[in-house]
Amino acid sequence: MTRPILYTCARSRGLRATWAAEEAGVDIDLKILPFPPRYLAPEYMAINPLGTVPMLVDGETQLTESCAIAHYLATRGGYTPLAIAPGERDYGEYLDYTYHADATITFPQTVYMRFAIFEKDKGLQEAGHAYAKWFHKRLVKVEQRLEGREFLCADRFTVADICVGYALILAESVGLDEGVPDTLKAYRARLTAREAYQRAFAREEAGRKGLQSNGG
């Protein structure tokens, strides 16, 4: 099999993919790009015309959605405990929370970041903070699901936890943690204590620091 190449920016949604690779034991060629790559790494546009991260290239396979990449890496050599197969208990819930993570939870975070952090000089901070409230309200589904559970599905850690967990990690790093329930903070702490997460984070940080030392 070819060695997959993962293009990403440190601490971005691509962390889901880096983390999944570490959990699944998939040897990836990790390419850390400066943020935003469409401006600071224009050569990347020839690889991914969207200019977004992450992007996984595995032979002729190309993926640009972080949750899809995480699932792909977890099942690249066949189903593993990181994914839930059709017919297995909680298969539907596994799909639902894996997609819910980006479409419903991370989406309002990105709008908040754009209007309240990156482009706050455009006078749209109020809209950004409205999306922050939306994010906090959308956490109720995960909060209720985790009542009496350690993980989201099938009584084990899966890609669904990686995808949802990243949104909670992002909340802490961009100033949205005040509205996160304590139960979800405890869930996040359990996830980030995993050795595979620690390795993934360290790999991305090493790449980021390498860019800085090279003037990137």
Rank of each mutant, 00 (worst) to 15 (best):
I105H: 01
L33H: 02
A20V: 03
A186P: 04
V53C: 10
R149E: 14
F115D: 11
G148N: 07
T61E: 13
L191P: 03
P54W: 04
R138C: 14
A46T: 13
Q212A: 15
Q198M: 14
K122C: 14
E65C: 07
I32C: 02
P4F: 01
P36G: 09
R156E: 09
D102F: 06
A167K: 00
R190G: 14
F157M: 13
K133L: 08
A189I: 10
Q212K: 11
P108Q: 06
D58N: 07
D155P: 06
M55E: 07
Q62V: 14
D58I: 08
E93H: 05
C9P: 05
Y91N: 08
R89T: 11
G216Y: 12
D161A: 07
K137T: 10
A83M: 03
G128V: 03
I28K: 00
Q109W: 04
R89D: 09
G77Y: 12
E143K: 08
A130P: 01
A132S: 12
I162C: 03
V142I: 13
E126R: 10
V180A: 00
G51N: 12
E205G: 09
D121Q: 14
T52N: 11
D161L: 07
L170Y: 05
A193R: 12
L50Q: 15
R138P: 02
I162L: 09
D121R: 08
E23A: 05
T75C: 10
P81L: 09
D90L: 03
R194K: 15
D90N: 09
Y7C: 03
Y97C: 02
W134L: 15
F201W: 14
Y39P: 03
M113E: 13
D121N: 12
R13Y: 05
V111W: 06
A196P: 06
E204C: 13
L6T: 02
P49D: 12
Y131D: 05
A83N: 01
K31T: 09
R76V: 05
G207W: 10
R16I: 04
R199V: 14
D177C: 01
A70G: 05
R38A: 15
P37N: 11
A167P: 04
C9L: 08
A10D: 09
D182G: 04
R16A: 06
M55K: 10
Q62K: 15
